[in-house]
Computed example of a mutant assay.
Amino acid sequence: MVVAAPPGRPRGEIRVPGTDVVKSQRLRELREFLMSRRARVTPAEAGLPDGGPRRRTPGLRREEVAVLAGVGASWYQWLEQGRDISVSPQVLDAVARVLRLSNAERRHLYVLAGLNPPAPEVAPERRDMCEGLRRLIDTWMPYPAHIMDMYYNCVLYNDAAAVVLGMRADRTRNCLIDFFTDPLYRSRSRSWERNARSVVAQFRAAYAARPDDEGYRAVLEQVSEASEEFTALWNERDVEEPGQVRKELVHPLVGLLCVESTALQVPARPDLTIVLHTPLEEANTAAKLEWLASPQGRRGAMYPVAG
């Protein structure tokens, strides 16, 4: 179907919302957002006198926000009016502090102001989520699942991860280091060489986002000292985002298992990654995993088996 061009517009010309329109919408949203956040902060919460019954503004006044943030009153007025002015992360952080913004709101403020948002942080009230995440990976049974922190340290794993992947309390500490140094996992993984490159490339991407983080640096030093294979792959400087990885494992009791691991992140806990393993339609993998989780399979796993 051919759509006729409106009068005055050349035939075949398609109008696409320009950057000016998008920018205008963003600045209008910035204005509404700042006004709504300012209205909910009382003078008492900001450490100011409440002004008594004569005060008409429900929250802070613009000039009060400016003084508390250490910026000019005119500049803050222009910011809240959605004018196209220059802003810096330092000033936005000062405004966010005065307006008592949450981590998510602070990132939203950066986006509306046209700056790259800071890295996500864990809100204090969301730090205690481990019980819920434990229920999540236990519900994934009989399929393997584990959770690791931003440095690849193993936080939690379910029973299937112990039986299939060889995770165990006396050994499993850091998933990256274990991938290169754990002889049990290495002996079971038929796809180790193929997946090693992706594992290193994903760690480089995470490390590059926080180059000054001592936690990443410590892991890098430890795994580099422990594995020449890691060092060789690290020097290739490949970068890859986490996603889905095919794994082929040979379990001593049931033989070949073909699974697909998927890395998921919970926005409320950006420091954690949930890794779920889904059986593929090969080698009767789903049935084998169900058997390994059954009482009979668990009894079989109690006895020492090579590999």
Rank of each mutant, 00 (worst) to 15 (best):
M1A: 05
A301Q: 11
W140Q: 07
S88I: 03
E228P: 09
V65R: 00
R11K: 01
M141Y: 05
S261K: 02
Q90V: 12
P120E: 09
D128E: 15
S198V: 06
K247N: 13
P267H: 10
T262N: 10
I137G: 04
L156H: 12
D182S: 10
P304A: 11
L34F: 01
R269Y: 08
R15T: 05
P295C: 07
V200Q: 06
S88Q: 04
E248K: 10
N103F: 12
C258Q: 05
R237F: 00
T262Y: 06
C258M: 09
V200L: 04
R135Y: 14
R190F: 01
L253I: 14
R106F: 10
R11P: 14
R190A: 12
W192A: 03
S261D: 11
R173D: 09
G47H: 06
L184P: 03
P53Y: 00
Y151R: 02
T231Q: 09
E125M: 12
T19W: 13
M141N: 15
R28I: 00
R299E: 15
V223M: 06
E221C: 09
Y157E: 01
D93Y: 02
K23V: 00
E125W: 11
S191K: 03
A46K: 06
R126N: 14
R134P: 02
K23G: 00
L30F: 09
R38F: 12
R61L: 01
R204G: 10
L109H: 08
A306Y: 12
R28T: 14
V223D: 06
T262R: 09
V199Q: 09
I177R: 09
P295N: 11
T139H: 14
V122H: 06
T278R: 14
G132P: 01
A206E: 11
R210N: 07
V98M: 08
T181W: 03
E229T: 15
M302T: 14
S24T: 08
S88V: 08
V91I: 13
V155Q: 08
A145C: 09
T57Y: 07
Q265K: 15
P267A: 13
E29F: 00
R168D: 12
A306N: 13
P58G: 08
W192F: 00
P7A: 12
R194K: 10
L289Q: 10
E229Q: 11
R173V: 14
Q81I: 06
C130G: 14
P120V: 06
A218T: 14
R135A: 15
W192E: 02
G114S: 04
R106E: 12
R173M: 05
V305T: 14
G72K: 03
V239F: 15
R62K: 01
E236D: 09
V3K: 05
I177Y: 03
G307E: 07
R40I: 15
G255K: 13
A119G: 10
R134I: 04
D182Q: 07
E80V: 04
D138L: 05
V91Q: 01
S86Q: 11
V250K: 08
W75H: 06
E32P: 00
I14W: 02
E131K: 08
R54S: 11
L253Q: 06
A39R: 12
N116V: 15
R97A: 13
